[in-house]
Nucleic acid binder design. Sequence first.
DNA 1: TTAGGGTTAG
Length: 638
Amino acid sequence: MARSLRKLPLRPKPHISPRPWHPPSSHKQEFLRLCSNGSLREALGVLLSQQWSDPNAFILASGAAADRFAANHLLHAYAEHRDLRSARALFDKMPRRNVMSYNILIGGLVKNGDLGSARELFDRMPQRNVASWNAVVAGHAHFGFDQEGLGYFLGMRREGFRPDEFGLGSALRCCAGLKDVVSGQQIHAYVAQSGLEFDMCVGSSLAHMYMRCGSLRDGESVLRALPFLNVVSCNTIIAGRAQNGDSEGAVEYFCLMKAARLAPDEVTFVSVVSACSDLAALGPGRQAHAQALKAGVYSSLPIRCSLVSMYSKCGCLDYSLKVFSESCSSDLVLWSAMIAAYGFHGHGHAAVQLFKEMMKEGIEPTEITFLSLLYACSHSGLKEQGMEFFKLMTETYKLMPNVRHYTCMVDLLGRSGLLQEAEALIKSMPVSADAVIWKTLLSACKTHRDTEMAERVAKIVITLDPSDSAPYVLLSNIRANNQRWSDVSEVRTAMRERRVRKEPGISWVELKGQVHLFSTGDRSHPLRREIEECLKEMIRKMRQWGYVPDTSMVLHDMEEEEKEFSLVHHSEKLAIAFALLSTPSGATILVMKNLRVCDDCHVAIKLMSKIEKREIVVRDVSRFHHFRDGTCSCRDYW
DNA sequence: TTAGGGTTAG
């Protein structure tokens, strides 16, 4: 995939911000003189040249209403300045309205979010033109009523209107919102036919539609065909990559954009910080933070939200809190981001406390806030509180829980050993169960050693997600422990036939700006001998503290000794050994991992932190673990 | 009357 950014001219987007007018007296006198002479058009010319919207101007509107040209201009001025009451009053007084008068008022209502009135006016228009249809399609697209917007777009076509670049852009936005790639492709065919494919707005909307529907390649190919790139098309690529699992590509494109001297804007920073958050890339995330400050867009709430999340995912919870506290805002998303940040670090009590403060502030929580809160409770063992919040969500706030909320509840019950209750909840919930929720229960069965239920649940997981190796391994080991050898070989055959492989575990450590990557059993590092020695010594010391390798999750076709060897060489253990060798004694170690930390490593790292008198921080795929003096911040809930 | 962005789960 070509990732070059062509050096093309940047077309600045015109931006006119409405501002209150304090007219110089000469203008005002001229305006009043023209009005008293009945020269309304000229008077309005003066008024509009100064971008004036003043309640007093309405007094003159009674005269203006009779003159359609003048009235439409005044109507436009009112609509631009969001003075919809005056606009409506003027509109009602106009004896001779035309399509333009309707369109202007509809546009104003739409911008003000009053879609109902806009629709009502649209329905009773004696005549419509393309602009009338465009205005309603755009309005619905803007406020996320995508299905309705697409409906109006189809209505426009049914009535024989040829959609232009405005209507097409909005309709594509609706397809993006609905992730309706089929309608999007149909519109693309029309766009190509009408030669509008190279229009910057239509092209960006088209690319955005493809990216939202998961097709990064189609989106990028549309953008590459555009006559030039601007900040919006670059942002479309950055966000598209980040949202489609290519966060690395997103950060890379951000660097190319800067190299091409294309100034990033607020949207660029939001997307790039989110990408850094996904990558847990603290360095680039911090740089983006500094650049946003320099660019003067740091006051933006979306930027602050993504920073709160980024710092948390990079292990700097105190920075998340700093950004949050500095913001002093009652923005719901910002509060939700901070609750999630606490949850990610296993600070369940802090998350609950913040949620209570949020309610005191009168901020209404959403499904996402509750999901973060329930997650925080389940990862901190706050069973009673989690159950209360679930009740609050459904009964007081009347919010509909989705399968992820139920997964948190299953986790909460399962961790507490209430396996029957957890299974009953899955069976009674009104949404359909997926592989993840059953895997959550399976993990609880494993923790509480309920082999009968584990065997049953593992089979369900295998049916729902045949590619995941964990349930096969678990099933095989349960059967092996009971000497059911023919059943064990049945599992192995199934694994072979379905080509199930365990996703390789990868851990990495950043040292002096360089990333050192370790995969399980890796012997490629230049310090492999030293790492091996360090691990051997460490295991010896750990055994003195009672460490026994937990081989229950290693596939049974190995000798016990081999199993232990495999465990010792798990990627996180290799990364920690390397960090112990390469950093000064006492320094905190930070390791990132692509999968969840396994049970054995979790026990081992607790002991390592005690023996080495070091804080070891491990960020796995689901959360942060802070190991200190033989314990972990997750209190073994993870 | 047209374009791009924030928080969550695995």
